[in-house]
């Protein structure tokens, strides 16, 4: 097992291995596990857990993703951006990743995506469904404003039903307030 103290690299490694595992299991929509070992942000409102930067060199532990594939998108672009507590505006630190998503989607115009809005558990179900829908639509609107055809994008809210971090406290909650861009069709097969 490779361990690297730099959290950004550790995240990338985790994403690669998770994607590889998902592919091995023939999962159609690999959902990378979020590492729970990141240093906890100090307090609310917090800095985001940084999303993986675009275009890393693939580690030798795994085959390089085929351009235009779902793995390419997940690993080289990044499929999740994060939100502040009870907020749905796209954060400034999320725009580089969403810009990269828009570019990638314009490069592969057959790809269809579903934007999935997620919330932390510090809210009630109905309200969180509505809040998750706001987050998904904020990301959708951003991608459309940056040239992605609206008809290629659907949205859904999972409310607080799909936490990616099973922990409690602000660190876990900040991970669980996110929007996930899932490829649902048109990507090249790996």
């Amino acid at each position: 097992m490779i361990t690297i103290r730099n959290s950004g690299s550790a995240l990338r490694l985790a994403l690669i291995s998770a994607a590889a595992v998902s592919l091995a299991a023939c999962a159609s929509h690999p959902k990378p596990a979020y590492p729970t070992t990141q240093p906890a942000p100090p307090s609310r409102p917090v800095e985001p857990p940084r999303s993986p930067a675009p275009a890393p060199q693939p580690e030798p532990v795994s085959q390089a993703p085929l351009p235009g594939s779902e793995r390419d998108f997940t690993i080289n672009v990044g499929d999740r951006v994060y939100f502040d507590y009870d907020m749905y505006s796209v954060r400034s630190d999320a725009t580089p990743l969403l810009d990269a998503q828009a570019s990638w989607l314009k490069r592969y115009p057959a790809v269809q995506v579903r934007i999935e809005g997620n919330c932390d558990e510090r809210g009630t179900q109905d309200y969180n469904l509505a809040l998750g829908a706001r987050r998904a639509n904020a990301v959708r609107d951003y991608l459309v404003a940056h040239g992605v055809t609206a008809g290629r994008i659907t949205t859904v809210s999972y409310g607080k039903e799909k936490p990616i971090d099973a922990g409690t406290g602000e660190a876990a909650e900040s991970h669980n307030r996110n929007s996930h861009t899932a490829i649902v069709g048109g990507a090249r097969m790996q």
């Binding site: 749905y88 509505a130 829908a133 706001r134 998904a136 639509n137 959708r140 609107d141 949205t155």
Partner: peptide, 9 residues
Amino acid sequence: FSVERGGNS
């Protein structure tokens, strides 16, 4: 019930 359209419920 609630209906959400374009992010607004």
